[in-house]
């Protein structure tokens, strides 16, 4: 009896805690998602709005730059006033020292992200460093790791907020931020049959599969005679490791490894293994 009462009591406490955890706001902390950006089509206005997105999104700037004053509240400050003051401050020793104008302020903002300790806003330095070491992480390094184009976009955004015409260079198509690995994953569940998986990843548009008669890639019939499981796996997730005779490297996409679920890969391998040599 004592046992039952004690256990019941303990369960009750646990239930209260669990219930409490379940009534608080439920937010899942997803890993940063890379938005697909068509860099070729970005004009300056596009860069500014990309910068704004990055500022509160992937760049996580608002984590610190907000009204709780862990860092200067860049969205509330009058940047048109504060930035020129920074450049004129004798404590500032960076590249834009004693310069003026939109170009110089752009350089200052850019530098603030790559080398924050070049100028530490008074009162915000690391404890005990006397405002010589910034607490702000270098934005081009992990964990934030923004690309040069993205850093330019934020620079443009902040220049714009300071009432200046952005001076950064527009990105060329090849500089575009890497397209997302995870895009679309949320909506689409994993395929449950091999045929659906082949369809999803478009294998039959290059290989002669399901009667597609495509010939960009080699025939896969009887592949199990030629390659063992491990080799087939490698051919799919690292296609350029070994190139099939008579075909060119870099034709088959090399990011299936990132896109496929393990279950899908297994389905496909199973399917390919059992493809008869002569259909």
């Amino acid at each position: 009896m004592t046992f039952v009462r004690v256990m019941g009591f303990s369960l009750l406490i646990l239930l209260v805690y669990t219930g409490f955890a379940n009534i608080l706001p439920q937010v899942q902390g997803d890993p940063p998602k890379e938005e697909e950006i068509d860099a070729g089509s970005l004009d300056m206005a596009g860069m500014v709005s990309l910068g704004q997105q990055l500022f509160s999104g992937k760049g996580t700037c608002t984590l610190c730059h907000n009204k709780r004053l862990r860092a200067p509240d860049l969205l509330a400050l009058d940047l048109a006033k504060s930035f020129p003051q920074r450049l004129a401050d004798p404590r500032y020793t960076g590249i834009a020292k004693s310069k003026e104008g939109a170009q110089a302020i752009g350089e200052y903002i850019h530098e603030s992200m790559l080398d924050p300790s070049k100028y530490v806003v008074a009162g915000f330095g690391k404890k005990g460093s006397g405002d010589t070491i910034s607490q702000m992480p270098k934005i081009n390094l992990p964990p934030i790791s923004l690309s040069p184009v993205e850093i330019n976009a934020i620079t443009a955004f902040l220049q714009d907020r300071a009432g200046l015409t952005p001076t950064i260079a527009l990105p060329s198509a090849s500089e575009a931020p890497a397209p997302s690995n995870d895009a679309g994953e949320e909506e689409e569940g994993p395929s449950t049959t091999a045929v659906a998986a082949l369809e999803k990843f478009g294998c039959s548009s290059c290989h002669d599969l399901e009667g597609s008669e495509a010939d960009i890639g080699p025939k896969l019939n009887g592949i199990s005679k030629k390659l063992d499981d491990a080799k087939i796996t490698e051919a799919i997730i690292k296609p350029n490791a070994e190139i099939a005779e008579g075909f060119e490297a870099d034709t088959m996409p090399d990011d299936f490894g990132e896109q496929m679920r393990v279950s899908e890969l297994n389905l496909i391998i199973d399917y390919l293994k059992n493809l008869p040599e002569n259909p």
Binding site: L14, L15, Y17, T18, F20, A21, N22, L24, P25, Q26, V27, Q28, G29, D30, P31, L141, P142, P143, R261
Partner: peptide
């Protein structure tokens, strides 16, 4: 942290409710 990314399907921070249930 900052050295090796977690690319596993569970690389997210679970919601408080999910965590609470697991902890219970």
């Amino acid at each position: 942290y900052t050295i090796m990314k977690d690319k596993s399907p569970e690389a997210y921070i679970p919601t408080i409710g999910e965590a609470g249930n697991t902890i219970t």
